[in-house]
Amino acid sequence: MIQNKSVLAIIPARGGSKGVPRKNIRHLAGKPLIAWTIEEAKKSKYIDRLVVSTEDEEIAEVAKSWGAEVPFVRPSELAQDDTPGIDPILHAIKVLPDFDYVILLQPTSPLRIAEDIDACLEQCVDKKASACVSVTLTDKSPYWMYNLIDENTLQPVIISEKPILRRQDAPDAYVLNGAVYVADIPWLERTNSFLHEETIGYVMPKERSIDVDTMMDFLYLETLLSEMIDASEEK
Rank of each mutant, 00 (worst) to 15 (best):
3 Q>V: 10
6 S>F: 07
8 L>C: 03
9 A>V: 01
12 P>I: 08
13 A>N: 01
14 R>N: 14
15 G>C: 04
16 G>T: 09
17 S>L: 10
18 K>I: 14
20 V>D: 12
20 V>Y: 07
20 V>Q: 09
21 P>N: 01
22 R>E: 11
24 N>D: 13
25 I>R: 07
30 G>E: 06
36 W>L: 05
38 I>Q: 07
38 I>G: 06
40 E>P: 00
40 E>G: 01
42 K>H: 06
43 K>H: 05
44 S>M: 08
47 I>E: 02
49 R>N: 11
50 L>F: 09
51 V>Q: 01
52 V>Q: 04
52 V>A: 08
53 S>D: 01
54 T>R: 03
56 D>S: 09
59 I>A: 06
60 A>L: 07
63 A>P: 00
64 K>M: 11
69 E>I: 02
75 P>A: 01
75 P>F: 00
80 Q>I: 09
80 Q>N: 09
83 T>H: 04
87 D>L: 12
93 I>Q: 02
94 K>T: 15
94 K>H: 12
96 L>E: 09
98 D>G: 07
98 D>I: 08
99 F>A: 02
99 F>D: 02
102 V>I: 03
103 I>W: 01
103 I>G: 01
104 L>G: 11
106 Q>P: 13
108 T>C: 14
112 R>S: 13
113 I>N: 15
114 A>V: 12
115 E>A: 15
118 D>F: 10
119 A>P: 11
120 C>G: 06
120 C>W: 05
125 V>Y: 06
126 D>A: 12
131 A>I: 00
136 T>E: 05
137 L>R: 14
137 L>W: 02
137 L>E: 11
141 S>W: 00
143 Y>M: 04
147 N>V: 11
149 I>Q: 13
149 I>N: 13
151 E>P: 10
151 E>Y: 13
152 N>H: 14
153 T>A: 13
154 L>P: 11
155 Q>K: 12
156 P>H: 07
157 V>N: 12
157 V>Y: 11
158 I>K: 03
160 S>W: 13
162 K>C: 08
163 P>F: 00
164 I>D: 00
168 Q>F: 14
170 A>P: 00
176 L>E: 08
177 N>L: 02
179 A>I: 08
180 V>P: 01
181 Y>I: 04
183 A>E: 01
183 A>T: 03
183 A>Y: 00
183 A>G: 00
184 D>T: 06
192 N>Q: 13
193 S>M: 03
193 S>A: 08
195 L>I: 12
198 E>V: 02
200 I>W: 06
200 I>V: 09
202 Y>P: 05
206 K>G: 10
207 E>P: 09
209 S>P: 08
220 Y>Q: 15
220 Y>A: 11
220 Y>R: 15
221 L>G: 03
221 L>R: 06
226 S>E: 15
229 I>R: 15
229 I>Y: 11
231 A>S: 14
231 A>Q: 13
235 K>Q: 14
